[in-house]
Computed example of a mutant assay.
Amino acid sequence: MKSYYKISEISILYNIGKDSLRYYEEIGILSPERDNNGYRLYSIQDIWKLNVIKDLRNLNFPMDVIKDYLENKTLENTLDILNEEIVLINKKLEQLNVQKDAIRDRIKSIVEDAAVENLEEIEIKEIDERKVIVLNDTFTRDEEADFLIKKLHRKHEDKLYLLGNNYVGITMNLDKIKEQNYHSYTSVFFVLDKDDKDYDRVIPGGKYITLSYKGSYEKTKKFLPMMMEFAKKNNLMIKSDPIELYKIDIHETSIVKEFLTELQMQVE
């Protein structure tokens, strides 16, 4: 076994940037020797320290805590550090289990949504209230909707996992729809879990006219007038801006014909 390793070898072996290794030296955690050419040479003792640093940094231990431990290593300090590691690992496991449950729920909803029947048919449904995070803004183009959705996602990325575990929706301007303008929108939102305590507002529960379709979003302008006429014929008053809910979209598939959209209008 080699007694010393160069900085390039250590960087590759531990997948640690050379800048990080120099920083560890700068703050006094590592003290590599130098060869005749001035190159850093890391000892077995330095490698042991790197093992400790890497493990503790993976659990987000601050560098000052790591430095203090390495400089004042005792049996008592080691036991304290190990117990703290267990606490942090348990927290990570809790977070991962929450994320795993959310992914399982999303798998279930995707399978159910992909198998939906009664496409392009108007139905009346009772829908429970929904907690949402929302970004209110007026816009008219799909590109603007995409931008606002990304903006909302960045703002709440701690809640919204990568593979679209939350339904995405937009609200459409009811007054503009009455004027046959089907590209005027008032907000974008993500639907949260019903038990979530951190949300922007609640979409009221109640009676909704709904229609689901697969394919291009351009179909919305075909179905909205049909839903408005249905409400009129059945003496139903539309209570708020209609919703375009993206149940399966670009987050799950790049094939447009697999997109599933549900239009919703709350009525009384």
Rank of each mutant, 00 (worst) to 15 (best):
Y5V: 04
E9R: 03
E9A: 06
I10M: 05
I12D: 02
I12G: 07
L13P: 05
I16H: 06
I16T: 06
G17Y: 06
K18N: 07
K18C: 02
S20N: 14
L21Q: 02
R22F: 00
R22Q: 04
Y23M: 09
Y24Q: 02
E26S: 08
E26P: 01
I27E: 00
G28M: 12
G28C: 07
I29R: 05
P32V: 05
P32S: 04
D35S: 02
N36G: 09
N37S: 12
Y39S: 05
I47P: 00
I47A: 03
W48R: 15
W48A: 07
V52K: 00
I53R: 01
K54L: 12
L56W: 06
R57A: 03
R57P: 02
N60S: 13
F61A: 04
P62I: 10
P62N: 14
M63T: 07
M63I: 15
I66D: 03
K67Q: 08
D68N: 10
Y69P: 00
N72F: 08
K73C: 02
E76P: 06
L82M: 14
N83P: 00
I86S: 14
I89C: 10
N90L: 08
L93Q: 07
E94G: 03
Q95L: 12
Q95P: 04
L96S: 09
L96D: 10
V98S: 14
Q99M: 14
D101V: 12
D101F: 01
D105T: 08
S109P: 03
V111E: 12
D113G: 09
E120C: 12
I122A: 04
I124W: 06
K125C: 08
K125T: 09
K125S: 10
E126T: 11
E126H: 11
I127M: 07
D128G: 15
D128C: 08
I133W: 01
I133Q: 11
V134Q: 13
T138P: 07
T140W: 14
D142R: 14
E144H: 13
D146E: 14
F147I: 13
I149P: 05
K150H: 11
K150A: 13
K150D: 12
L152A: 11
H153F: 15
K155A: 15
H156Q: 06
L160R: 10
L162Q: 12
N166M: 11
N166S: 11
N166E: 07
G169M: 07
G169Q: 05
I170C: 06
M172A: 11
N173E: 11
L174N: 09
D175Q: 11
E179G: 09
E179C: 08
Q180L: 13
S184W: 07
S184V: 00
S184P: 13
Y185C: 05
L192H: 03
L192N: 10
D193C: 01
D195C: 09
D195A: 03
D196E: 04
V202T: 05
G205Y: 11
K207D: 02
I209L: 14
I209K: 01
K214Y: 04
G215H: 02
K221E: 10
K222V: 15
F223L: 13
L224S: 04
M226Q: 15
M226H: 10
M227S: 02
M228Y: 12
E229I: 05
A231L: 07
L236T: 09
M237P: 05
M237Y: 09
I238M: 11
D241M: 00
P242K: 11
E244R: 08
Y246M: 14
K247D: 01
I248H: 01
F259I: 05
Q264S: 02
Q266H: 03
